[in-house]
């Protein structure tokens, strides 16, 4: 059924709502229109193209290494879920956008078109549905975000999200100092061992006290998913429990002057035995 051949609906008087067709009848009539069906089909196709993006996004995030902490796992999960839940609205928006390019006809040429389109001033149903859909989506994202933030905060504090209790292991304190353009790591519990590479044992909570000697830097441990500014004159805190052996990237994520680009180092996650050996070699004392 095309727009050139509109159906006739039996309605006599606008003043008498009793004569309007029932809602289900109107919905059925609306769904029978050709353009509505084509847009729904297009939305489904676009939606099916968008959802795989959730995996693509995770793939790109993992290119330099899979998540090495529970925090990074939560971050990737959030990216995945957000992509999937926003797919329907994105799909409908893009479907209408693409369909309207030619779907209802188009006009070319130099002169203003003579043929006018339907004078649709508003549509209460569409407005209510759109506001409801966007509000539900935003509400879901907010609630998900609040819960996830609480989750990663408790991971950062070395506790388990479920009961908010410390998981029994004492965290290793590490003092992180940024200065133009190097990172310095000091282990106060290990007899003030100092290093410019971060060497940490696996599955032990780490607690970072971050500060700066000069300008604002940002301590970003990429594959572990933690990031906090290093401010002069203040100590900021973050924490993480690495759960994967290997070497990962630490980058400065706040412009800090001339050699900002080169202000990066590595974090090595090693076994407890290797860590103890390293501490001894550095002249520190054994971890409790």
């Amino acid at each position: 059924m095309s727009i050139d051949n509109p159906p006739t609906i039996e309605v006599d008087q606008p003043e008498e709502p009793t004569n309007r067709p029932a809602a289900d009848h109107r919905l059925k009539e609306w769904l029978s229109r050709g353009y509505v069906r084509r847009i729904i089909a297009l939305s489904i196709v676009i939606g099916l193209l968008i959802i795989p993006l959730a995996w693509v996004v995770i793939h790109f995030m993992n290119l330099s290494g899979a998540p090495a902490s529970a925090i990074m796992v939560e971050i990737e999960r959030t990216m995945f879920v957000f992509t999937v839940v926003s797919a329907p609205l994105m799909a409908i928006t893009l479907a209408i956008l693409f369909y309207s390019l030619t779907g209802w006809g188009r006009v070319t040429g130099e002169d203003p078109p003579m043929q006018e389109s339907p004078a649709i001033r508003t549509n209460g149903t569409a407005v209510v549905l759109w506001i409801a859909a966007t509000s539900i989506l935003a509400g879901f994202l907010v609630i998900w975000g609040l819960v996830e933030l609480a989750t990663i905060t408790s991971y950062a504090n070395g506790s388990t999200p479920a009961n908010q209790q410390p998981n029994g292991q004492k965290a290793i304190d590490i003092n992180v100092t940024g200065q133009q353009w190097v990172w310095t790591f000091q282990y106060p519990d290990q007899g003030a061992v100092t290093s410019d590479t971060l060497i940490v044992p696996i599955n032990v909570p780490l607690y970072f006290n971050v500060t700066s000697k000069d300008v604002v830097h940002d301590f970003w441990v990429v594959e572990l998913g933690i990031k906090i500014d290093a401010n002069p004159g203040a100590i900021t805190n973050t924490g993480v429990t690495p759960d994967k052996l290997g070497t990962f990237n630490i980058r400065c994520a706040e412009l800090c002057g001339l050699h900002h680009a080169y202000m990066q180092t590595k974090i090595q996650v090693v076994t407890q035995a290797e860590f103890d050996a390293w501490v001894r070699e550095m002249g520190g004392k054994r971890t409790v």
Binding site: I3, L97, S100, L101, W104, G105, T108, G109, I120, I131
Partner: peptide
């Protein structure tokens, strides 16, 4: 999102002069 709705609603069933 309201603003997107207004633009989509205006596109709806219109014949664009391209």
């Amino acid at each position: 999102g309201f603003l997107v709705l207004v633009m989509l609603g205006t596109l709806w069933r219109g014949k664009p002069w391209t």
